[in-house]
């Protein structure tokens, strides 16, 4: 019998089985691939695949992690939040962080932005009033090719 794999993603329960058949999650699938290719949650970006850029950041049980280095089969029972899970599911209203990013133009091409927002979200959930040092430390794993970091810091500071 195939092993079950239950994930809660953005508040929704997903029941998978582990295996190689169509529709099953193979053991060697990483979370970023499950999110993007299987569930169509393409807000999470795939980039370096090595934990170095932060574009694939999602929140698992409250911690920001690189989904490219996370095996989906090892997420049994976990609560996963992606960028798609931030806006209010009923009203569609954006999360305050997203709004702040918009207001401060805290992005250019936007490729890194979902990852940065997820890292910010994890930080503020745990520590609503971080110092600038703590903020920088929390975002230090997120890289931006377009040098949006300055606006990012301003955006986040505007809501803390």
């Amino acid at each position: 019998m195939s092993r079950n794999l239950n994930l809660t993603i953005n508040g929704k329960m997903y029941e998978f089985t582990v295996g190689d058949r169509l529709g099953q999650i193979p053991e060697n699938e990483t979370l970023v691939d499950t999110l993007r290719d299987r569930l169509g949650l393409t807000g999470t970006k795939r980039s370096c695949g090595q934990g170095a850029c932060g574009c694939c950041t999602v929140i698992i049980d409250g911690k920001a992690v690189a989904s490219c280095l996370t095996l989906t089969v090892e997420c049994e029972g976990k609560k996963i939040t992606t960028i798609e899970g931030l806006a209010d599911p009923v009203t569609g209203e954006l999360d305050p962080i997203q709004k702040a990013f918009n207001e401060h133009n805290a992005f250019q091409c936007g490729f890194c932005t979902p990852g940065i927002i997820m890292s910010t979200k994890a930080l503020l959930d745990a520590n609503p009033n971080p110092t600038e040092e703590e903020l920088k430390e929390a975002l230090s794993g997120n890289y931006c090719r377009c040098i949006s970091h300055y606006q990012v810091i301003e955006a986040v500071k505007s809501i803390i």
């Binding site: 911690k63 920001a64 992690v65 794993g141 997120n142």
Partner: peptide
């Protein structure tokens, strides 16, 4: 070590 993203895992 690395960044908080990595240290979290």
């Amino acid at each position: 070590v690395a960044s908080s993203l990595i240290r979290n895992a």
